[in-house]
Write a protein that binds this DNA or RNA. Structure first.
Lengths: 174, 174
DNA sequence: GAACACATGTAATTTGTTACATGATTAA
DNA sequence: TTAATCATGTAACAAATTACATGTGTTC
């Protein structure tokens, strides 16, 4: 799975500008995919050259011009090639978990701070996704519902485990 | 957090060869970090040049020679620079979740296959980690216990959510 | 005889990030 | 007036993957 595959998928449903795609990465996709502008724009350029998408120039007033990209037949074909390919193992880099793993090399106060911050983040994520879910649930496809449920429940679960861990750490003798 | 930071952390406790580090990435770290040989060996080389680690040549019979790396004082200092730096947001690329998100473009049979495979993987992961936990729990530090608990419970939770999702999909009219 | 575990390393390529450059409008 | 939102793009650089190359011993 490359950024191109994901962009192709997004354009399957709607024509969009690079900026809009970035907004989607930051909202819906944030807990399972992300890419920066420095990836999105060059990828869109490359895809247009290859005939997978076409560009439309939209002049806006008060705002900069937009390049709206639409997927082509060739692009749709390419997307299905991806959709029916083998699923790759997911790849996670969690700095927080690495810190925890090496936690005995840090002082107790610092660890407690790490845990409290992570608890707050997990809480915030699960609440944000829950709100999104309530707002969007009538427009989501069945598999998108599973996707967002996975996000909500995993962050709620994470919060639970972290709170148990925090209690454990706090109960320890110095 | 770079591969260098993680390798430094691993060498804080024990001198090891690149091959051993790879084994650790595949076992203990697998659910929150990973790096290939193509990353590990060049990184070790660079670290030695910078004086963060030292190399020791170990001749083995029947097996190829090993290069055992030990961390230096300079390396320890560098590790603490990392340990006390800001924690970076975790970065996940889940091909499975992306497929789910675009699931309405795939046929129902395929989706069911995806879900069943993911359920099996989640089950396997949580069982593997649970076994590791039972075997190692007396040697694990308190924060390592939180770390592994996070892995066990998150995969068990994932399995639960996926099974609910599968039922939902299977109950749908064609 | 094939494949796998052990063990290291390089090279080509891909992929991605960060920072910079530009510039209008709007809200604090 | 400062920052944020909107909007695109490039360039320098960093990071990482994949494949290749080498070679022994063991297991199937």
């Amino acid at each position: 799975m490359t950024s191109q595959d994901v962009i192709l998928g997004i354009l399957m449903k709607k024509k969009l500008a690079g900026y809009d795609i970035k907004l989607m990465f930051e909202s819906v996709f944030s807990y399972f995919y992300n890419a920066s502008f420095g990836t999105i724009y060059p990828t869109l350029g490359k895809m247009e050259k290859e005939g997978l998408i076409t560009k439309e120039n939209v002049i806006q007033d008060g705002k900069p011009n937009k390049h709206i990209y639409s997927i082509t037949e060739e692009g749709r074909k390419r997307f299905y090639d991806y959709l029916y390919s083998d699923i790759q193992a997911s790849d996670t880099k969690s700095d927080f978990m690495v810190r925890l793993y090496f936690g005995d090399l840090a002082d107790r106060g610092r660890i407690i701070q790490w845990l409290k911050n992570a608890i707050r983040r997990a809480e915030y994520t699960s609440e944000r996704l829950e709100t999104d879910y309530e707002r969007l649930k009538d427009t989501l496809t069945p598999t998108q519902i599973i996707c967002i449920r996975l996000g909500i429940e995993s962050s709620a679960n994470k919060k639970k485990v972290l709170m148990e861990g925090l209690q454990q750490i706090e109960s320890l003798e110095e």
